[in-house]
Amino acid sequence: MDALFTLAFLTQIARISIPYALPALGATFSERGGVVNIALEGILLVSAFATTAAAFVTGSPMFGILCGVICVTLKADQIVSGIAVNLFAVGITKFSCQLLFNSSSNSARIAGIEQWSFLAAVPVLKNPFLITTGLLVVASHILLFRTKFGLRLRAVGEHPEAADSLGVNVARLRYAGLIMCGGLTGLAGAWLAVDQHSFTDGMSAGRGFIALAAMIIGKWTPIGALSAALLFGFAESLTIQLESASRYLQLVQMIPYLLTMIVLAGFIGRSTAPASVGIPYEKEAI
C-alpha cells in the first residue's frame, strides 16, 4: 500500500482531478444562477483546441489559455442549446484542426507549461494549475457565500421573480454565472491541451459530464465540487495504478455517474438543485 501513496500517485490524482474540478466549479456558478449548463463538454473541447491552436501560432501556452477562456464567452444556454454547443464543438474543432494541422484528429505538438521554479522544493506544487485550482475553489466559496454578488446570484437561481422585484437584474447575473462557468471550464480545457502537449479530437472524453456529476454530488457548493472531483480522480488513479484492476477501468469510470444518480435520488443525503434551475426567466408582460 505504501507504494501507492507516492508523489507520482498524488500528482496523477491532481492531473486527473483538475479538469473535473474546474468545470464543476464553473457549473456551480451557472446553476446557482439558475442555468443548467450541459455544454461544459463542448466548452472544454473548444477551449482545449483553442489552446493548442493559439499556442501553435504564437508558441506561448499562456496566450492559449487566455484564448481558451475568451473563446468561451460563447453564450451557453439551457439543455437543447447545450446539446447544440456540444455538437458544434465536435464539428468546429475537427474542422479547424483539419485546416490548421492537416489532420482532423491530431494537432501538432505544443510547448508544455513552464514549471514554477520557486516552488521546486515541493514538486507537486510546481504545477501552476494545481495552485490556481485550489485558490479558485477558496475564492469561489467566499464569492458565493460571503459576498453580495453571491447572495444575489443564489437568489436569482432560487426565485428569480422575487429577486427581480427587489431590483436585481436577473439576466445580467445569470450571464455572469455563465461567463464564470465558461472561464473556469476554459481553464480546464487549456490544462487538458497543455498536459497532453497537443489536441486530439474528442479529447474532452466526457469530462464535462463528469464535472456536472461532481457538481451535483458536491451539492452545488465549490468545496463539495472539489471534493467530488478529487474522489473521482482518486478512484481512477487507483485503478490505473493497480495493474490487475486496470481491466476493470471501464467499470470504475461508471462510479461518478452511478454515484450522481444515487445522490439525485436522495439516498445519500438530500441534494437539491436551486429551485429555478433550467427555467428561462421571462418577465411578465404587462
Binding site: V36, I38, I79, G206, F209, L212, A213, I216, Q250, L251, Q253, M254, Y257, L258, T260, M261, L264, A265, G266, A273, G278
Partner: peptide
C-alpha cells in the same frame, strides 16, 4: 419516484451504458 431530473440521469445512463 424521487423527482430526480431526467436530463441529468439520462446523461449519466449514457455513460454507464457505454462503459458497461
Amino acid at each position: 419516484r424521487f423527482g430526480a431530473h431526467e436530463v441529468i440521469n439520462t446523461i449519466m445512463m449514457n455513460f454507464i451504458g457505454t462503459a458497461l
